[in-house]
Amino acid sequence: MRLVACVNHVPDTETKVKIGADGKSIDRAGVNFVINPYDEFAVEECLRLKEKSGGEVIAVSLGGDPHKETLRKALAMGADKAVLLKDDSPRDSFSVARALADYLKELSPDIIFFGKQSIDSDDAAVGGMVAEMLGLPSASVVVGLELAGEKNAVAEREVEGGHEKVAVSLPAVFTAQKGLNEPRYPSLKGIMGAKGKPIEEKQPTPPQNKTEVRSMQKPHAKGAGKIVGTGAGAVSELVRMLHEEAKVI
């Protein structure tokens, strides 16, 4: 079974984002980049499927050289191979999906796993788009996955207010939600072993962006808090303000 985990290299969740000089991108200086947290669930799930049913796990990333760090982590966790679709140019989700789909088509995996979204631009679009481009079934926001023989799988996904189980035929695309699994730490042996595993570099299809970022803005700074009063006497005024001004109750 060929299992592919698509991984993105994104700013750490602790990053205090600054907008770059062009006003359209973030300032990358001093920013710590990590594997996209949802993609870690994707890698882990592929590794578990391999441990259960055999096969190989390939980690794929699209981006510049720094993405190798994230691929290296996937290898250290246990992926067998890594592929970098090397390209620094700005891409929207469509363009990323196009390049991945073009590459994945020739690879013909049985299972393609994404994180449900990348925490950088938060489009939550690439997994679904790739499935569509490849004409494959897909299940998004997956919190559980069971293989049913070689050619079928049942995915459990989060829906509003509950869970649903969907049956898909393989090959298929899945996007991972938190709760799917508990990603392993790469072991020190795994990290040393990853040094010997190659990261293959490929030229992706050129960008075909459908959208363009015009500007980026930080959210408005929070205003100062308001102290309504102290003691029980202030409650009715607080309730009134929450109801009439903030309109939250």
Partner: peptide, 9 residues
């Protein structure tokens, strides 16, 4: 790169 990965892990 691998020393940093060890440290971060």
């Amino acid at each position: 790169e691998d020393e940093i990965l060890v440290r971060n892990t």
